[in-house]
Amino acid sequence: MAAASPAVLALHYQNDVLHRDGRIRVGLAADDPSRGQLIAAAGRLLAGARQNRWPILHVRIAFRPDYADLAQHLPILRRAGELGAVRDGEWGAEFLEALAPLRDSPIEHVLTHTRISAFAGTPLDQLLQLLNARRVIVAGVATHSVVESTVREAADRGLAVTVAADACAAADTAAHHASLASMRLVATVTDVAGALASDGDIA
């Protein structure tokens, strides 16, 4: 039996997170040179997945304009509300143009959530089952929040996980590297080139 293709989880590549004029820019200041490097790496990941015809699941975080669906007990999300960030229907909640899903692409899907893990409150698990995805390649911002939370939940759900580290970033470089080290307990941590070099086969 042929091995199922991996699915790529592209997390929070949104204007408020990555654009120079974004309200959050988690780990990527407007003048930070690593910002361009991250966007380029994420672009290579998406391009490689498209070339390989691997499913891409674009996950965004977005709240009602009045933030009635924002979990106030979570400081990281409460801060988004304080900044007026990622309001559904506004520019900030939209995907960064360079990393946006392709319209009418049968291999690309968009999910929206309001928590930390991409699995929380979304049909991500059901969609991965429908796609017969037994392995996921995860990348996004921020490394120590949505990425690590999603990686750990994916591993707990029986998926083999690869993290494309150069397509991830965090507010603090030390936090980014600590999170990558922690995820090595449950996932393969490599770069975009390494993630794309895999043929999707797992033992």
Rank of each mutant, 00 (worst) to 15 (best):
G22A: 03
L9I: 13
L130Y: 11
Y13R: 10
A47D: 14
R79C: 07
A181G: 11
A139W: 00
A195I: 07
S182D: 12
L77Q: 09
G27P: 02
V151T: 13
R135V: 13
D66C: 10
D66E: 04
A174K: 14
P101H: 08
N132D: 15
G158K: 00
M1E: 11
L96M: 06
R60E: 03
L9M: 09
A142I: 08
P123K: 13
R103W: 06
G194C: 10
A197H: 03
A30Q: 10
S182R: 12
A195G: 13
A93L: 05
T162L: 12
G89F: 15
L185A: 15
G92H: 03
D21I: 02
R134M: 11
G140T: 07
A80R: 08
H12G: 04
A85H: 00
A170K: 02
N132V: 09
V8M: 02
T190L: 05
F63S: 07
T122D: 02
D32Q: 08
D104H: 14
R79P: 02
V8Y: 00
L196G: 00
P75M: 15
R53H: 09
D201M: 11
W54K: 09
D69W: 08
I137D: 03
A71C: 10
A142Y: 00
V141E: 01
D172C: 13
P75D: 12
D16V: 07
D201N: 11
L38E: 02
Q14H: 05
R157Y: 00
H177A: 12
A203I: 14
I61F: 09
R25G: 07
I56Q: 04
A47M: 08
L45I: 12
V147R: 01
P55M: 04
L28M: 12
